[in-house]
Write a protein that binds this DNA or RNA. Structure first.
Lengths: 270, 270
DNA sequence: CTATGTTCTTCTCATAGCGAGATGAACTCA
DNA sequence: TGAGTTCATCTCGCTATGAGAAGAACATAG
């Protein structure tokens, strides 16, 4: 606390370095569903440190000059890396929420950096184009990253993540899996109108396990405000046959009650 | 992104101000149960800004000089303000978790400050003594703060909170209420050995509503790993009569399955 | 066109979990 | 001693869920 002197004349010219400033970044865990699998947006670093490795899109928060709020910084970084502009409306259906803040000393070899991580859920978006100082940008299947339960990457994984981004991504995935249980978040991965089998495919991709089609159907329709019918029917059936499923849109519920719990939850309780 | 030049020579002498640094604080929402009601630890500010108003205990993170991790900073601030030392073991039974990060421009009138909020759950602790630059410190009943659902304080409340701390406290309370549902966190508010009526009192204090004693009893004993019996019996009955309840200690479960859902959750779903 | 396999949607049935209430025993206090 | 309170357990009815079955609609191969 010995650094905290001079507060009484705070209206005078102020030197922020007295308060031991650090740099603050935002990193975004952007998730989407592609080809029936869960994908995360990654960029390949074009500069040291960790040059050539893959990382979550992110960058420094505009702190004093042109100060911006943290969610705005996350949207800005996401837009810069994907090539989609927030003004264009392409990011309108993207759900954004804060994931957590990571500030262990040494997590950035250059200097003290504290990173505020955000979690984004999006319906299928176009391929990104590399922007900023990224050498490349791509939607990557999360299964190919070899993430362990403790947030580490298994040996032999080709795409190694920079900084502590494997831990951040792992936390984001667990948050997403959990939020699917008690919020209608899965609809954020779908188009404006979707079928119940499509919604089930979202759950199966994020949770990584198959669900009982009949029980899932009954459950989705019984939870108040989860989905509402459009009255219309999809123009084609399943890809290997079957009748044309009906179309729904997201309802007005903010929480699912009762929740839609994932089946596997007996071993990892202790 | 125009600020991001010179990354290639990061091994040379480095000026953090190039990266638009901001100051980072930690604030702690420390909750406990006293006299059957939920209390939060507040300090009265002895200096501007917001001099004389109440605030969450917190302070600047040691950023570059004597760099510390964020949870360590939270424990340090909590120890400084309560007069309890982490080494003494008094804070051993305190559960600490990150709540969220608040960084809206203008939230501190002095300068750009980003605050990482932590949430602490503690069994009954002694009265704090004011430390650091706090003029006073006290456990305060949360009901006396007039917090609205949107994180604002109702007009007429005497103890007004500085900065955006009403919002942070409101978020912390909602997090705590929610975590009681699906984690054994309520045991963190109890002593090492406790009775089921005591555990029920924790739920009733945090949720602000009475629970059905019989059903609560059945539920706690039926969830695997929530509590385990000590075989002993409390030395006295309820304060107004009744048999001596049995004693339990916390079990080894990290999640409650099935969850212990609060009754009121029909209106605030939409 | 026909046959086969797939998928959507709606059933049935058994079991588990929960809200509400009741009951008897143990205890405090007047 | 009597009245009131609380602990602990039980019953009853309803809801939710897991597992399986079945019919109808559709795609595809032959």
């Amino acid at each position: 606390m010995s650094e905290r002197h001079g507060e009484s004349d705070f209206l005078a010219a102020y030197d922020p370095r007295e308060y031991d400033p650090v740099s603050v970044t935002v990193d975004v865990v952007a998730l989407t569903i592609r080809d029936g699998g869960l994908h995360v947006l990654l960029v390949r670093r074009g500069r040291p440190p960790f040059e050539g490795m893959w990382a979550l899109p992110g960058g420094f928060v505009h702190g004093v000059r042109d100060a911006e709020d943290l969610p705005d910084a996350a949207v800005r970084e996401l837009a810069e890396e994907t090539g989609l502009s927030a003004e264009g409306g392409a990011l309108d259906r993207v759900h954004l929420e804060q994931l957590g803040t990571y500030g262990a000393p040494g997590r950035d070899p250059r200097m003290r950096v504290i990173s505020v991580a955000y979690l984004a859920f999006a319906p299928e978006l176009p391929d990104p184009r590399a922007g900023g100082d990224a050498a490349d940008a791509a939607w990557t299947p999360v299964g190919a990253l070899g993430l362990g339960a403790a947030g580490e990457q298994r040996p032999g994984t080709t795409r190694r993540l920079a900084f502590d981004h494997a831990r951040i991504l792992s936390d984001g995935l667990e948050r997403g899996r959990s939020k699917l249980e008690y919020t209608p978040l899965a609809t954020a991965f779908c188009a404006a109108e979707f079928t119940i089998p499509e919604l089930r495919a979202v759950y199966e991709a994020v949770w990584g396990e198959e669900l009982h089609a009949g029980n899932f159907h009954r459950k989705v329709l019984s939870v108040p405000g989860f989905v509402e019918s459009t009255g219309a029917t999809s123009d084609r059936g399943g890809r290997k046959g079957g009748p044309r499923p009906r179309l729904y849109r997201a309802g007005d519920a903010r929480l699912l009650h009762p929740a839609l719990l994932r089946p596997s939850s007996e071993e990892e309780i202790r």
